[in-house]
Design a protein around this nucleic acid. Structure first.
Lengths: 339, 339
DNA sequence: CTGTTAGCGCATTCAG
DNA sequence: CTGAATGCGCTAACAG
């Protein structure tokens, strides 16, 4: 079973010290730039390091320094374009810092999310970024006693935990107002899951825009989805099955807008000629749908990037001053003036 | 600057031992099930653990046991649906194993990829999964001297490194044959980057299918893209600009097919009525394009999952027997018989 | 400028 | 069944 000839036993700092004829501390000093070292010794050590392809054992370093040089990222779905775009921001934010990240998923389940966070804490991550968590603010605050935490989707600000929150209500309001300005008055809404706070806020924005335009809210024009494509399609089918009349649809996120789009295609309804469609998020794929999707742009990449920079600041005890770009309407080609 | 009242100083195994009135070794034994312990002491220890919310420091454990319980994943683009779908497979494969993963990106650059791998090795990951690497097989073999490696896209099999390879040529052949069977003879090809081996193999498959049907290869019908949407659109524009005639397009991957689709939409060309389109990958989004994309299904999720199981087996010195489902044609709605 | 010493938190001999 | 002692690989005083 077990092969034992794995070759090249990883060399240690001690090996390097011996080979270079110096003490371990000298090697350590050179590695960390902790103190001045004479040129000849330095050269010898560097040569030994290169020769043995030595790289310090990060677990040992971490144990000693109390810093793992690792941060934890909690997402809810590791293969959703929504999270992945932010992860790219995190990745870029970490570039050149020496930090690596371990990514875990809460799968939209509060219990699992807490378990994962505990796992990260046991791994001694130096900080945590929470992307769209389900757990309570209080939990976050509790966890932040152990390690600094940056979270999206919540309004917190302590010495060890900060949160960024997008104004979902405003975004939805922008989307619907755009439709209203184009002359639409019968505007259907494919909502997100009611137990999701972002979804709830977007609903509020929808309502607000209608109210402001003196358009009566019609519950029959609203169908709940779950933020995925299939649910958008289902919701739309339901609207048609119940004979609703409308000239526009606002989907609570781009993914469900894709589903709506497919339903419309199946029914031979043209977009935007017959019906206008607006999404929310502006996922990378939304500029390449047919036709390109009008949507509310959420700065996903920036969120990841800024959260990372904020966390690094927290870790280093620096003051954090983070500003995330606001949501904005991106008019593409799925909306047009009602005839 | 630095706040020092971070509260709840993480308790150690020694703290637990003291609180329970036993020796550290006893606590360790209970934690690891290493030896029998009397019930009363066990209860006391368990109580102390619960009371102090103790969780063993994984860095210390790792240093001691020589196992970090972490595996490294190397992708090329952290926010590409292609990789993310495989990452989901990895995530599921790791579930319940106690392993966590640190994901790094090589950004399609061999040098960066090697650097990242060295980083992972320095972090003492217990194994590495390489998703579509750019580095040479020899490099992989060299790295595998230090830790087991499972890689996709290559044909290797040593005691410490195994590779899984999809038959890209066959997949492309399937795609083009499908088009030919529908009566198409002027089939354009939007290739992938020529320095990418998958792309090269897909080109070979395209050529093979044409040859088999006695259709002369027309270089003017081929345009090189880079696997991204924009390049698909550009390539298609180029084909139109140079007045090429064709009734079908085979795009080397789904992303570029999306770009092709948009170009066609812009020109008012209907799919599949005027032109048929086939992609490659079957990304999650491809069932929701308008119309849903006919493509070659690549078992992305399974690849991640199976690679993970294989790696875990390698780590544990078990025999690995992995079989990845073959590529298959998924006929959806972007292809139809030529009129 | 440099070597010696002492742990970081834990698992594992080795005695009892 | 259980405690004392030792060391994983590295850094940080502490002396020179």
């Amino acid at each position: 079973m077990n092969d034992t000839h794995h070759a090249a036993p990883p060399s240690t700092l001690l090996d390097v010290a011996r080979q270079a004829g110096v003490s371990p501390s000298t090697v350590s000093r050179i590695l960390n730039g902790t103190a001045r070292v004479s040129d000849d010794k330095r050269d010898a050590v560097l040569a030994a390091i290169a020769h043995m392809k030595f790289a310090p054992n990060q677990m040992a370093q971490g144990l000693k320094k109390g810093r793992s040089m690792t941060i934890g990222i909690v997402v809810q779905d590791i293969s959703s374009p929504f999270f992945d775009e932010s992860l790219r921001g995190v990745d870029d934010g970490l570039k050149g810092t020496g930090y690596a990240s371990v990514i875990v998923s809460g799968h939209w389940n509060a219990q699992e999310e807490e378990d994962r966070i505990r796992l990260l804490l046991a791994r001694k991550v130096d900080g945590i970024i929470l992307l769209s968590g389900r757990i309570s603010d209080q939990s976050v605050l509790d966890f932040s006693q152990q390690r600094p935490i940056v979270s999206t989707g919540r309004q917190i600000a302590t010495h060890n935990a900060i949160g960024f929150k997008m104004d979902n209500e405003y975004g939805a309001y922008l989307a619907v107002r755009h439709l209203i300005e184009l002359g639409h008055r019968r505007i259907a809404f494919v909502a997100g899951p009611s137990n999701n706070s972002d979804a709830a806020e977007r609903l509020t924005g929808y309502e607000k825009a209608l109210r402001e335009a003196d358009i009566a809210l019609d519950p029959k024009l609203m169908a709940e989805g779950d933020f995925h494509e299939a649910s958008g399609m289902l919701a739309m089918n339901h609207l048609f099955d119940t004979q609703q009349q409308f000239t526009a649809v606002f989907a609570a996120n781009d993914l469900s807008a894709y589903g709506v789009r497919l339903c419309l295609y199946r029914k031979g309804i043209r977009v935007p000629d017959d019906i206008s469609l607006v999404g929310f998020d502006d996922l990378p794929g939304s500029s390449y749908t047919t036709p390109p999707l009008t949507t509310i742009r959420q700065p996903l990449y920036d969120i990841g990037r800024i959260a990372t920079e904020a966390l690094l600041a927290l870790i280093n005890g620096e003051a954090v001053q983070a500003a995330i770009p606001p949501l904005e309407l991106v008019v593409r080609e799925t909306t047009r003036r009602v005839r």
